Measured scan of single mutants.
Amino acid sequence: RELEAFAERFKQRRIKLGVTQADVGAALANLKIPGVGSLSQSTICRFESLTLSHNNMIALKPVLQAWLEEAE
């Protein structure tokens, strides 16, 4: 499924970029996305391991996609 594929791609790109899960969480606050502050390292970890609820995964995907586009 698309969500699982994105989570895997996100993790691979993050590692290639040399960015930690905690760095991603902190950097999200800098994107100034309305309603989104920083996220914890454990939230990023749970996203990558697909252990968040489906609704949370869907909500976080565009936020993490925005970070990925900014980071690349």
Rank of each mutant, 00 (worst) to 15 (best):
R1D: 04
R1S: 10
E2F: 02
E2K: 09
E4I: 15
E4R: 14
F6S: 05
F6I: 08
A7C: 09
A7Y: 01
E8F: 13
E8P: 01
R9E: 14
K11V: 08
Q12P: 00
Q12C: 05
Q12E: 15
R14V: 01
R14C: 00
I15N: 08
I15Q: 05
K16C: 14
L17N: 03
G18C: 02
V19M: 15
T20S: 10
Q21R: 05
Q21V: 13
Q21S: 05
Q21A: 10
Q21F: 04
A22Q: 07
D23N: 10
D23H: 13
V24C: 07
V24G: 01
V24H: 00
V24T: 02
G25R: 07
G25S: 09
G25T: 11
G25Q: 03
A26V: 11
A27G: 07
A29H: 11
N30A: 12
N30I: 04
N30M: 06
L31A: 15
L31F: 12
K32C: 11
K32P: 08
I33M: 05
P34D: 10
P34H: 09
G35H: 12
G35M: 10
V36D: 01
G37A: 09
G37Q: 13
S38V: 15
S38N: 14
L39F: 02
S40G: 09
T43L: 13
C45F: 13
C45T: 14
R46W: 05
F47R: 01
F47T: 00
F47N: 00
F47Y: 06
F47Q: 01
S49I: 02
S49F: 03
S49H: 12
S49K: 12
T51S: 14
T51I: 02
T51K: 15
T51M: 15
L52T: 03
S53G: 11
N55Y: 08
I58S: 12
A59S: 03
K61L: 07
P62E: 06
P62S: 08
P62R: 04
P62Y: 04
L64N: 01
L64R: 01
Q65S: 09
W67N: 03
W67S: 02
L68N: 00
E69G: 07
E69Q: 10
E70Y: 06
E70I: 04
E70A: 10
A71H: 15
E72N: 07
